[in-house]
Design a protein around this nucleic acid. Structure first.
Lengths: 149, 149
DNA sequence: CCTGATTGTTGGTCCGACCAACATTACATG
DNA sequence: CATGTAATGTTGGTCGGACCAACAATCAGG
């Protein structure tokens, strides 16, 4: 207990995130998955086939991390990379049927995690928290809206 | 924008933490300090001389991370390690005058970060958020309340 | 055509959060 | 007292997440 920390928003958010992250990581590990992979699967399922660059922008992943995630997901048959006929440098990434099934499975896992994470709050409090947290999340970009690099 | 993520508490907390962490890290780096070091200085100033193990428990740092933090802080003359006369295996760590001054300086930096981080919220909203976040932070221990190891 | 951006990949870095092992020392209990 | 168990500080790692730089290939605009 360090008083100087205990009322700092950055500290509290950090500790909350630590707990959230541990719950999430643990649950996903048990399910044989990883958070990055879930992000990718979710984006593909919701937006249809995408280039890796677009995938990165949607999921807030670096291009290089998209690459390695797709390597793993592809190895498990959850996604497919094909060359984009219109842009030969671009890949067209899609989710497979197995990927959709996996996503559903992970959706359930994630929901369980939410419940455990939000356990300390009542229903109305959860609603308030989600709103405030979303506003504090902002766009996260250091250089104002619409990062380009 | 991945809808499946945008209403998940874990995602929101993660993004909020990312923004918080970037602000904090940036500001501290500019001030020539690091978050771990601030934690240590704060604990020492508030609790007086401590063993490294106690320091770790107070700040939620691993013993090994306390060691390396104290190496750096000691090199800068902000803390002092002396052998504890009562327990020869134990070190008695204290903050120096320079350390106190540095802590004050970093307090100001931290306060600035809080303001920027909480910018999107009104004053009353901030109060609510701090309360909810503190409850979600819990004690962070994986094995139930009251970790002992 | 040439320049500048974009794409995917490789191979890193950095920080925070751990963990294991070890020698040393303290402590509880037989 | 002896003996085992716990705690301390240090070293040397691991892992995940979030990056960054550089490169070759390709596209898009002037």
């Amino acid at each position: 207990m360090v008083r100087r920390l205990d009322d700092r928003a950055t500290w509290l958010v950090g500790r909350a995130h630590l707990r959230s992250h541990r719950l999430l990581h643990e649950a996903f590990a048990e399910a044989g998955a990883r958070p990055y992979h879930y992000r990718v699967l979710a984006a593909l399922e919701e937006s249809g086939p995408l280039s890796q660059a677009d995938l990165g922008r949607l999921t807030d992943l670096d291009r290089s991390d998209v690459t390695t995630s797709l390597d793993a997901l592809g190895r498990s048959g959850l996604t497919v990379r094909e060359p984009d006929p219109a842009h030969r440098r671009r890949n067209r990434v899609s989710i497979t049927e197995a990927g959709r099934a996996e996503l559903l499975r992970l959706d359930a896992v994630l929901s369980g995690v939410q419940d455990r994470f939000l356990g300390p709050l009542s229903e109305p409090e959860r609603v308030v928290f989600l709103d405030l947290a979303a506003r504090l999340a902002g766009d996260g970009a250091p250089g104002g809206p619409g990062r380009s690099g």
